[in-house]
Amino acid sequence: MPRPPRSPAPAPRRHAHGGEGQVRIIGGRWRNTRLPVPYAEGLRPTSDRVRETLFNWLMPKLPGARVLDLFAGSGALGLEAVSRGAASAQLVERDPALVAALRDVVVRLDAAAQVQVAAGDALRWLETAPAQQADIVFVDPPFADGMWAQVFERLPRHLAADAWLYVEAPSGAVPRVPAGWSLHREGGTRDVGYALYRRAAATLRDDLNATPSA
């Protein structure tokens, strides 16, 4: 008697970014390292294309930088920064499965001396954690939560005087940053818009230093 046909195996759950549960570090000493991406509602790791653009912009600022990645997710932004020369990264993530995956990656990369993973809500962390004096901050929250303004309000005590701020949001809807930031570069894809800012006082200081003496 012929066997009944097998039922097809269930397709892997596709994440919001359209991938199958992995992203990769695209540059630096950990280049091509695969990062697991457990399913989490609203998770949308920054694409290779956008990250390549961002880190081209940041390249001169990465060596020795202290990085704060507030909605770490897969860790693609914070770990990419350390891979390319940042001195340290503080990753903040509230989803337990993602936190576990991040900690596993840190162990696998032998990166505990440079990369710290904090489990918890980013807004609460900003209110209660010791001041960081971060040189580069990544703000890429779940879009549906709309937390950009609340992050911006709580961020200043964690910033170095000449900090850089990366913001990602839905295409055409990058939020307005508070006074005190100067737009450096911006771009977009069909799905996301992104922008890199610098603290305006640092930008003004650089402009004044570049002005020839009379």
Rank of each mutant, 00 (worst) to 15 (best):
G172A: 12
F143Q: 10
G172Q: 06
L98D: 01
R94Y: 06
T53W: 00
A72Y: 09
D110R: 04
A119I: 06
S171M: 07
R6D: 12
S74L: 05
R190E: 14
F143K: 05
R24A: 14
A202V: 12
V37D: 03
R124G: 03
M1F: 08
D140L: 10
S7P: 04
T211I: 08
D121Q: 09
L109N: 01
L68C: 12
A40P: 03
D104I: 01
R199C: 12
Q114S: 03
E127M: 03
S7A: 15
P63A: 08
P10L: 02
A87C: 10
R185M: 10
Q116I: 00
P12A: 07
L159C: 15
G27K: 04
A195V: 09
Y39P: 15
E127T: 10
S171A: 15
A65P: 11
R84G: 12
D207C: 08
V105N: 02
A81L: 14
R84E: 12
P170Y: 07
R205P: 02
D207Y: 08
R198C: 13
P8M: 03
L204I: 05
L204R: 11
V107R: 09
T128F: 06
L102S: 04
I26R: 03
G28D: 07
Q133T: 08
A112W: 00
S74T: 09
W181G: 02
R157N: 11
A202Q: 09
A160G: 14
Q132K: 06
H184Q: 14
E153I: 04
A16F: 06
V174D: 11
I25N: 02
E153D: 13
V23M: 05
G42M: 08
L98A: 09
R13K: 13
G180L: 06
Q133I: 05
L196N: 12
R6H: 13
V92L: 08
D110P: 00
R154P: 04
E41D: 15
A101I: 07
L77Y: 13
G187Q: 10
L77S: 15
G27D: 12
R176G: 09
R94S: 14
R66V: 05
R185I: 08
A89E: 05
G75S: 10
A201R: 13
H15S: 13
A160P: 02
A9G: 07
R176M: 13
H158Q: 13
G187I: 08
D48T: 04
P63W: 11
G42K: 04
G180S: 09
A65L: 13
N32T: 12
L183C: 09
P10F: 08
L91I: 02
A149E: 14
Q90A: 14
R94G: 06
A86G: 05
V139D: 02
V23Q: 01
L204S: 05
A131H: 10
S47V: 02
R6G: 15
Q116V: 01
G193L: 15
G187H: 09
E168L: 05
L208V: 08
A97Y: 00
R3G: 15
V137M: 11
V115H: 01
